[in-house]
């Protein structure tokens, strides 16, 4: 297995690091979906904050079937949070933003990469403006040729498919495979499973699709090593900080 999708512990840690170092805010709260997604986020956030002698201000979970997050918002608001990391689906993010608007809570939001998607804007409207996404993929609107190609190809061959982060995710995985397969063919070796795995384990600092510096070695399959910071602004997803490595303490803690 050569996974690209990073552990959510890493994204949560990157988000917290950005809040602390760039935004200068340290009252971080977490609203998490009580399954693997949320638990990993909590793990990463705990780890990065304690490495810096800080703690989570408050954390509150929700069930995946929950549709109303107003109680959770009341809690983080009452705790005095400045920054809220929300790890759940885009519907949960939308519901949380709604609830926050209803009680006029204003703070900084961080959400997972897959919510940096036009479909989220369809749900939230302009409430999404100002939300940050720590993402291993460049934003959908970026002008990198590989992403332009994605935006051009999908409407041509799949006119019913919407452009989105999930598509870009698949596009990136396929792009990486193409890179590896070309390497294999140009090396002149037989295109066998073993040979392909060997080539994959030499992938080092490769850019593919919307991701950068993908690296695999024989003993380390943490392919993704860095993330960008995206901010939702006026209906678009804008890159506000280029790729930056994951906080070391969390990167060391996730399984290879």
């Amino acid at each position: 297995m050569f996974p690209l999708l990073p552990d959510y512990a890493l994204s949560a840690a990157s988000s917290a690091q950005y809040a602390l170092d760039v935004l200068g805010k340290d009252k971080c709260a977490l609203i998490w979906q009580n399954d693997e997604l949320g638990r990993r986020a909590k793990f990463g956030l705990d780890l990065v904050l304690s490495s810096r002698k800080k703690t989570i201000l408050t954390d509150v979970s929700f069930d995946v079937a929950t549709t109303d997050l107003s109680a959770q918002i009341q809690r983080v608001s009452a705790a005095g949070a400045e920054v809220v990391l929300l790890f759940g689906s885009n519907a949960h993010l939308a519901s949380a933003l709604r609830s926050a608007a209803r009680i006029s809570w204003k703070g900084t939001w961080f959400a997972p990469f897959f919510t940096a998607d036009p479909s989220t804007y369809e749900l939230t409207g302009d409430l999404l403006d100002g939300v940050y996404f720590s993402s291993w993929l460049l934003p959908l609107d970026a002008d990198r040729p590989a992403i332009e190609a994605y935006r051009a190809v999908v409407p041509k061959y799949y006119p019913n498919d919407k452009l989105g982060v999930f598509g870009l995710n698949g596009w990136t995985g396929a792009s990486l495979f193409a890179v590896a397969f070309e390497r294999l063919l140009s090396s002149g070796k037989e295109p066998t499973r073993e040979n392909l795995i060997a080539v994959m384990n030499t992938i080092d600092g490769v850019s593919a699709g919307a991701a950068d510096k993908i690296t695999f070695t024989a003993g380390d399959h943490r392919g993704t090593r860095q993330e960008v910071m995206i901010r939702a602004e006026a209906g678009k997803f804008r890159l506000v900080r280029d790729f930056s490595p994951y906080p070391q303490v969390v990167f060391d803690a996730v399984s290879k």
Binding site: N34, S61, T66, A71, R75
Partner: peptide
């Protein structure tokens, strides 16, 4: 009562 419970006790135990 659900809102009070979620706020003061545990929202994940709401059901």
């Amino acid at each position: 009562s659900c809102n009070l419970f979620s706020f003061y006790v545990a929202p994940e135990l709401l059901n």
